[in-house]
Amino acid sequence: MKKLTLISVPITVALLAYTSYLALIVAPTEQTMGDVQRIFYYHVPSGWVAGLCFFINFVASALYLWKRSPASDALAAASAEVGVVFCAVLLITGPLWARPVWGIWWTWDARLTTTLVLWLIYVSYLVLRRFAAGGQTQVLAAAFAIFGFADVPIVYMSIRWFRTQHPSPVMGGGENSGLAPAMLHVFLINLVAFTVLGILFVWLRYQLQMQEQALESAHAQLALKGVSR
């Protein structure tokens, strides 16, 4: 296990260095937006990793409620934390790009607002984990995770209706925006690199969480022994 971690960290760093070189130097400059478009190679993969993490969180939480295995709770905690970080990157890079291109930092558009609400929901998930007492944390957090995940499609529906008059974001990479082949190539490699990075973070955080759990139960055992003596 430890060997795998030791190997995967330098590989991921090298991969990220390579994709950064591709995104910042090799990829052609976009005609109308100029260099600011390059943020796209970080923005979209971050969003993808955040979505992936929240999905893992949901599956792990449901699994925990069903089987009550400590490992799935550790996975849920790890993926929620990493998801919030990538979602924050998404929310920060978005306005950085929007300001020169749209002329505004923020608009209450369906995608933007849904992402913000998503971020809020998972931050409150983390707050709940932090403040729940002792052994109840896992069940309470898992229950809340189910609520949060169920809420996301409803949020998206409601806000899309609420803001129909707004233009949808001019995001590349969709079906009709037609990314140039050279850009698509760089984008896909970045997507892979970010996915690897996200999985690595979740993996490291998961192991840390498992160690914390082991430490806690060891403390509890020790205390029990003290009482019986």
């Binding site: 609400v117 929901i121 707050v127 709940l128 809420d151 949020v155 409601s158 806000i159 609420f162």
Partner: peptide, 16 residues
Amino acid sequence: MLPLLLFPITIPALLA
């Protein structure tokens, strides 16, 4: 804790 948990989940209902 209650508003911290309730408000984010309630956003779509409140909007409606």
